[in-house]
């Protein structure tokens, strides 16, 4: 049977994480139908139709879906679920919120954050902040899965699948959107898609210093900016920059950790990066145990030099 893949988007553009989840879906096998749900999403549906391996795009374009609240989105997905034996989505904030709802309404288990498809019903997933990897097999008739996007390559945009319009069922009206404070990263690549990530920790000491020391390096490298929980909790960086077990999971070509000690919860979010650089004053900081290049130094000296030396 077929696979229903929930597309991730911000109302403006299709997220790269959808392309990565598509390649996970390809490994499972079966016709892939991508569901684009939102308000005014025809452009996004058009982009999803280009994803390699996609048989068709289902577009649910309705004002009630504009903010992708979980309750109406789950009702929509349940209305479509009968035709599918696998329902899959990248593990984004939206999907993490709606997919367990869908699973519960279908009375099936969810397998969260798969990092490998072993077979159509067997998957690998990290537990304990990535300190162990479990191989699990589902016994349910339908499989509900979220995908750790960083673990899969992005499918290419070489296709032109048909776009079919689906109706949005009535909004259960349980919750309403009030406001959003988004887009702190204008002009910078998305954290989960960036080739280079420069991250700052508690050592930065203030939002001003974070901005003065980390951002110039990120700008010159065309990098996304990340942060440790300590830096976010202290207000040096916004919440959507947090990398880690309970933040974003990244696996860029280059991850530069500045003034971050390397707690297991932080490592959980970045230890699959290709090259890790650690800049830390403390030669015994655990971050050095995973770093390809370690520099024991004061970041306030190193980072300005680093930025100056870059073209």
């Amino acid at each position: 049977m077929a696979i229903l893949l929930l597309a991730e988007h911000d109302g403006v553009a299709l997220s790269e994480q959808t392309a990565r989840a598509t390649s996970a879906a390809q490994k499972i096998g079966g016709d892939i139908h991508v569901l684009v749900a939102g308000g005014g999403v025809s452009g996004i549906a058009g982009a999803a139709a280009k994803l390699a391996g996609v048989a068709k795009v289902l577009m649910a374009d309705d004002p009630s879906l504009k903010n992708q609240l979980s309750e109406p989105l789950a009702v929509l997905m349940i209305s479509l679920a009968g035709n599918y034996d696998t329902i899959i989505a990248p593990a984004t904030a939206t999907a993490k919120s709606v997919m367990p709802r869908v699973a519960a309404l279908l009375d099936v288990a969810q397998v969260s954050e798969i990092i490998e498809v072993v077979s159509s019903d067997t998957f690998k997933r990290p537990i304990y902040a990535g300190n162990a990897i479990q191989t699990v097999q589902t016994r349910d008739a339908k499989r509900v899965l979220t995908v750790r996007a960083a673990s899969f390559p992005a499918a290419e945009f070489t296709n032109s699948a048909p776009v079919e319009i689906v109706a949005a069922p009535a909004d259960p009206g349980l919750s309403t959107f009030v406001s959003a404070a988004l887009a702190t990263n204008i002009g910078r690549p998305d954290l989960t898609a960036a080739k280079i990530v420069v991250s700052g920790g508690r050592a930065l000491g203030s939002a001003e210093k974070f901005k003065d020391v980390i951002l110039p390096v990120a700008e010159k490298l065309g990098a996304a900016v990340g942060a440790s929980r300590a830096a976010v909790d202290s207000g040096y960086a916004p919440n959507d920059w947090q990398v880690g077990q309970t933040g974003k999971i990244v696996a860029p070509d280059l991850y530069i950790a500045c003034g971050i000690s390397g707690a297991i919860q932080h490592l959980a979010g970045m230890k699959d990066s290709k090259i890790i650089v650690a800049i830390n004053k403390d030669p015994d900081a655990p971050i050095f145990q995973v770093a390809d290049y370690g520099l024991v130094a004061d970041l306030f000296e190193v980072l300005p030099e680093f930025a100056d030396a870059l073209p």
Partner: peptide
């Protein structure tokens, strides 16, 4: 609903090298 087939250690990373300066990095 799920059968846990096995639980493994993740692939471990080895510590790399220490560099001495920004220029070397």
């Amino acid at each position: 609903r799920l059968t846990i087939l096995k639980t493994e250690e993740p692939e471990s990373r080895k510590a790399g090298v220490r560099v001495q300066s920004t220029v070397e990095l």
